[in-house]
Simulated scan of single mutants.
Amino acid sequence: MSPFTPSASSPACAPPGSAAQALAQAWQGAQRRRTLFTTSDRDCAQATVARVFRPHRLEPERGARLVAQMQHLDAGLLGISQLSYGAGVDIQPGPLERFYLLQLPIVGSARIATAGQEFRSDPGCASLVSPGADLRMHWDASNVQLCVRIEAEVLRRFVAAWTGRAVMQLPQFQPQLHLDEQPLLQDLLLTLIQVADHGALAELPSAQLQYRLLALLLGSLPHDASELLGGSCPPVAPRSVRLVEEYLLAHCAEPLTPERLAALAGVSVRSLFLGFQRYRGVSPMRMLREVRLRKVRAELLNAASGTRITDLALRWGFCHLGRFGQDYQRVFGESPSQTLRATAA
């Protein structure tokens, strides 16, 4: 018997202009998404989903005919999938253990029970499930969700690097997430889909998108590690700032992260950022961004016929093309296309 009471109302649809609608449109427009399975066989659906996420119990409602489908878009270090069952189902994976799961309904609704809470998740309310919490769900027949898996070990290393302390316990997030109230997170998820669909998620842009996602989750959403992340610390010394500055100039084509730069200086990420703000007036990642802008400009000034600005920007880690264009204009006083036209002339 289902532990939830299935909804008898009509399917919840994403309202026009909402985050869920924008994500649904981006997903439907993605040409590189591939179908992992379409099946009416419960065991097949359960086994395939388990390979992507974790073993679980999948129970369709009595008498319901499963019409399950899973699609996937390769997003480098982050995987994004669309999943639906076409029938009301109970899903009981228990604690996720090794990953966080961001679930974004774009049609229909689900009942989520985790971390001592039970709530309805629909296009107006996503869910973010933490690894240590038990998880039980009932997806209504119309429910279609986008799912993003975030490795727990990666987030743990992020917190440890930021604070400079060993992290024994993973942050636990408030599981209800209203994406319309998080425009930066919505923008990042749209960028993730668009860049993955471009086929440009090489190591450099993939690492940057993953870092931005972790920073947004920890910086914008409620969780139990806020005090640890917000504690005070001394800024890094000027000598270490110079060391990191020289390193990022020499290695700007590599997938540099704040954790890697902080480890080079032997300090926490927080101390590194404070030191750069004090002695350089910018964050290390802002400095790296401007170094890469100069690299893009140098290539545009020597571009061969047929060079595409989008390809060049993505190769240098500029995933948000609109912001790339704005930054380029601010630094060089002209747009990337103006630079390219001048070269062609």
Rank of each mutant, 00 (worst) to 15 (best):
L190P: 06
L190S: 09
R165C: 14
D187M: 12
W162P: 02
L155Q: 10
M168A: 15
Q174R: 12
L170V: 09
G164K: 00
T163R: 06
Q176R: 15
Q182C: 13
A160K: 05
I193M: 11
I193P: 08
V154C: 13
D187A: 15
V195C: 08
L188M: 07
L184C: 05
T163V: 04
P183A: 02
L177E: 04
L185V: 08
L177S: 04
I193F: 01
L170I: 05
Q169H: 12
G199Y: 02
Q174P: 00
M168Q: 13
L192A: 04
V154S: 15
D180C: 03
A196Y: 00
L184N: 08
V195F: 09
D180V: 00
F158M: 03
Q174K: 04
G164N: 02
R156T: 14
P171W: 12
L192C: 09
D197Y: 02
Q176V: 03
F158D: 12
F173W: 09
L192Y: 05
L189M: 13
G199I: 10
P175D: 06
H198G: 15
A166I: 05
H178I: 07
V159D: 03
Q172F: 00
A161I: 02
R165N: 13
A161M: 03
L188G: 11
D180E: 09
L185H: 03
L170M: 06
F173R: 03
P175R: 07
T163D: 07
F173G: 05
L177M: 13
A161N: 14
E181M: 09
A161G: 13
E153M: 04
A196W: 12
W162D: 13
G164A: 02
L188A: 12
L184P: 00
L179K: 06
R157F: 04
G164E: 10
M168C: 06
I193V: 15
D197W: 03
Q169W: 04
L179R: 04
A202N: 05
D180Y: 00
L185T: 13
Q186H: 02
L189A: 09
Q172Y: 00
A166K: 10
Q169P: 00
Q169G: 02
D197R: 09
L155D: 10
V167N: 09
Q174A: 14
D187E: 11
D187V: 00
D180M: 08
A161E: 12
Q174W: 11
E181P: 00
Q176F: 01
L184Y: 02
L188K: 01
A160S: 15
Q186A: 05
L179A: 11
R156S: 15
E181A: 15
A161D: 15
A161P: 03
D187I: 00
P171S: 03
L170A: 13
R157K: 05
A200H: 12
I193K: 08
R157P: 09
L190K: 05
I193T: 08
A202Q: 11
A161F: 02
T191K: 03
P183C: 07
Q182T: 02
A160P: 07
Q194H: 08
L155W: 12
P171G: 12
Q172W: 00
R156Y: 06
D197C: 10
A161T: 06
M168W: 10
Q194E: 11
H198M: 04
D197P: 06
L177Y: 01
L185R: 04
L184V: 06
